[in-house]
Structures are given as structure tokens and as C-alpha cells.
């Protein structure tokens, strides 16, 4: 015990997206490590679709995903809340007009 091993070299991280049924969009299901795209696809198939969870897989190197900054959440997304006129319920349509 406590024998120091040579550190295991890091392997590239991928994000996995699966289309569960025709007609649905690919959805993020998790991530995995693989050296290249082909191995990433195989690993994704073994890891995430053993019970018929999917019909199509996308794998994307994690470092290629560009994400919004969580600390800018307020600036980016809060203005939407103050613009009630973007929602249908902002407008009054008299009942006798019926469904609109």
C-alpha cells in the first residue's frame, strides 16, 4: 500500500448527446473520456444506450463547448422577466371573441 504509481495520463473528455426517439432533439446525457471520436462513440453506446435509450448519438469534445458565464446570469437572462408584453397573457381579448 501507499506505493506511488506513475500518474495515469489524462484522456480527453467528451460530452454525449442522445436522440431517444425519432422526432426528438438530441439531449445531453453525460460525459466520458476517450482518445478519439470513434472510441468516444463506442464508449457512449456502451455507457448510455444499454437499454434502448437512444437511436442516435453525438459526441463533442468538451473543450469545444462554449458556455455562458453563470455570474452573468442576471445580466443575460433577467431582462426577459421584465418584458411581460412578449407573452400572450399580457394582452386582453374579450371572452366573447373566443379562443385566440
Amino acid at each position: 500500500m501507499n506505493k506511488t504509481l506513475k500518474a495515469t495520463p489524462p484522456v480527453q473528455l467528451w460530452e454525449v448527446f442522445i436522440r431517444s426517439r425519432s422526432g426528438l432533439a438530441h439531449k445531453h446525457v453525460g460525459s466520458l473520456h476517450a482518445e478519439d471520436a470513434e472510441l468516444a462513440l463506442q464508449a457512449a453506446r456502451n455507457l448510455f444506450t444499454r437499454r434502448g435509450e437512444g437511436l442516435s448519438i453525438w459526441v463533442v469534445p468538451s473543450h469545444l463547448i462554449v458556455a455562458s458565464d453563470p455570474s452573468e446570469k442576471g445580466m443575460l437572462f433577467e431582462p426577459a422577466l421584465s418584458k411581460a408584453y412578449r407573452h400572450p397573457t399580457f394582452y386582453n381579448v374579450p371572452e366573447e371573441v373566443g379562443h385566440m
Binding site: L5, P9, L32, H33
Partner: peptide, 23 residues
């Protein structure tokens, strides 16, 4: 593997965690 991936979102690396286990 799902769990190592969850730990990695907290800036731990899977390889380092596995090395700790083996050591």
C-alpha cells in the same frame, strides 16, 4: 463512470481520483 464524471465537474480529475484509489 457516471460518478467520476460528476466529480470531474468539481475540478477533480478522474485519473487522479483513480490513482488515489490504487495508492
Amino acid at each position: 463512470l457516471y460518478l467520476y464524471a460528476a466529480a470531474e465537474t468539481l475540478n477533480a480529475s478522474r485519473e487522479a481520483l483513480m490513482d488515489q484509489l490504487m495508492e
